[in-house]
């Protein structure tokens, strides 16, 4: 039915041509529907409300992804460092550093970078000599990156988003002080009688073998281990190698011999 006809039926004065369109909307209005203005205002409000919520949800999804990656980074970093501290021989790490990181000698104090953790071989594995310590859990053969250079977290969903682990080691010379076991025939019966390292109470001219404080210097017995972890392609304009980064520092002592 044509609008003019509708208007006539509805008793609208068709001789008033000012706004047939709005008059025809009156038809819907008279049936308790929405006006055009109402709908437009409502749509504007909805758009104003939905846009920031959508942006927030998008951001939340990204953050969740990053959080999962960080969880994976922390989980695997913990495993790597705990393994290095408790299961790997000091000499095996040094051997890898000499092979790949350019470490000059067993006692060199220069920093060496291990880009490939597979170079750390388990010398205690006599059944299969030369087996990498992290052979099973960290080997990555995915596309786009050289095999053995990067490491993945074992979670299948991240199979092709490898997390990159680099190891930096630097041996530190260390001096330990101790109280000399002198005067054994003169029992010390009170804590106050114990000499202090900083004020050993040795009178001037005390012979070396009679000094109460001694020290020993060590080389090639302690290393600082820095594990650098990276994940994700950097966003445009960011000069970092990876979008997300993490690092852990610990120390390992040579206790095996």
């Amino acid at each position: 039915m044509h609008f003019n006809k509708i208007n006539r039926v509805m008793g609208v004065n068709s001789k008033n041509p000012s706004n047939h369109f709005s008059l025809s909307l009156n038809y819907f209005n008279s049936h308790r529907a929405f006006t055009l203005v109402e709908i437009m205002v409502a749509m504007l409000i909805m758009v104003a409300a939905i846009v920031p919520v959508t942006a927030l949800m998008t951001n939340n999804a990204k953050e969740t992804n990053v959080s999962e990656a960080y969880s994976a980074m922390m989980h695997q970093s913990t495993r790597i460092l705990d393994t290095l501290l408790e299961r790997v021989r000091y000499a095996d790490i040094i051997s890898a550093a000499k092979l790949q990181g350019g470490l000059a000698s067993d006692t060199a104090t220069t920093e060496a970078t291990l880009l490939n953790l597979l170079d750390i071989k388990d010398s205690t594995n006599t059944a299969a000599p030369g087996t990498a310590v992290f052979d099973q859990e960290l080997r990555y053969d995915g596309p786009g990156l050289a095999a053995g250079k990067t490491w993945q977290y074992a979670e299948p969903s991240r199979q092709f988003e490898p997390i990159i682990y680099e190891l930096k080691i630097r041996q530190m010379d260390k001096t330990f002080r101790y109280l000399l076991n002198v005067g054994i025939k003169n029992p010390v019966n009170a804590i106050g009688e114990i000499p202090d390292f900083n004020t050993p109470n040795d009178p001037p001219g005390t012979l070396p073998d009679q000094k109460k404080v001694g020290s020993v210097s060590l080389s090639g017995k302690l290393m600082k281990i820095t594990l650098l972890v990276g994940w994700g392609t950097p966003r445009p304009g960011i000069t970092r190698k990876y979008q997300n980064n993490y690092s852990l520092v610990t120390f390992k002592a040579k206790l095996e011999d």
Partner: peptide
């Protein structure tokens, strides 16, 4: 935590040495 673990290694090294 890993710094603390490193300190424990130092302590063990001192005991091992002396």
């Amino acid at each position: 935590q890993f710094l603390a673990k490193g300190a424990a290694q130092m302590a063990l090294l001192k005991i091992r040495t002396l």
